[in-house]
Nucleic acid binder design. Structure first.
Lengths: 157, 157
DNA sequence: GATAATAGGAAACGATCACTTCCTAATCAA
DNA sequence: TTGATTAGGAAGTGATCGTTTCCTATTATC
């Protein structure tokens, strides 16, 4: 075992404390990984593509089957734990805002149609991303997931 | 209580038996509701729109917060219960096939671009639908969900 | 109305779970 | 090396859970 029960209860108040810390850590790691991918992008469209590509990567094979802690928390905890509901909503809202930002950026650099409603498009792309993680639970190949990325970008035309 | 413990164990083998029956019933009810909505459609694109509209309806407000049993099963049970994993995968695959069918239908009646890869587009639209149910867990308005429908249909252009 | 079948529900069971207590072993600073 | 802090871990506690047993109402059948 990586950590013993005795030490665990010295480091964390209770089971929920462990989970909150794990959730926070999960979100942070995922955010760092995304930032890393975003470093190699130029246009707004490229940034949206990078986000979707990361989700496609996470959603395939074994990793996909393991699932996403944010989605799992939304599904399992949001109805019974108001604090967790708040945190999950905050994470999704943050991703949504980032998508809005990248879409607007794309509209300025010409890589995204200026006729689009950035808010609606961002929400829709967030659905695509979270939906990937749901489909990924049923075991999908890298190809199945990766092919969704470019097709989804059609939404920005 | 609607049903007593004594009677419950006479009608079902165990807890899992209750769940399997509930799952089956849930899928059937949802399928009937969808068939009802599809009755008033003409083109392939209209049929896709109907599917998305039903998901948007289910995903908003209180119903959205309650969540979807299929998504919940995918997230919670698919990793630990192979039989449930199979059932969840079967339900999603069935919806995916139906979307493929409607897209092809749309390509023939001219309401959907013939340049599209029907399989990829169907998978992508399924992501949108399942993603709506995830976002819906965080409490979204009818308007927020409904506006996604027409935007998503852009994928069929 | 008698009889059989079914629903309702209390009580108890073993198992598991989250958690506490308490003691020992390892680590580290002085 | 000594003394103090921290990790590891066994054992026990109370609560909850899934399930079984058994008995009493209720309902349906003839």
């Amino acid at each position: 075992m990586g950590i013993a029960e005795g030490s665990l209860y010295k480091a964390f108040r209770d089971k929920r404390g462990v989970f909150l810390a794990a959730f926070e850590r999960y979100v942070m790691l995922r955010s760092e990984r995304l930032a890393q991918e975003l470093a190699n992008t130029r246009t707004g469209r490229d940034k949206v593509r990078a986000i979707l590509a990361v989700y496609a990567e996470y959603s395939h094979g074994k990793t996909g089957r393991r699932g996403c802690l944010v989605v799992g928390s939304a599904v399992d905890l949001a109805s019974s734990d108001p604090e967790m509901a708040k945190r999950v909503a905050a994470v999704l809202a943050s991703q949504e805002r980032r998508l809005v930002e990248f879409i607007r950026e794309g509209q300025e650099d010409g890589s995204v149609s200026s006729r689009l409603d950035a808010a609606v498009s961002a929400r829709l792309l967030l659905c695509v991303a979270q939906g990937m993680r749901v489909l990924g639970k049923t075991g999908r190949s890298r190809g199945e997931m990766a092919s969704l990325v470019d097709s989804a970008l059609k939404l920005l035309d």
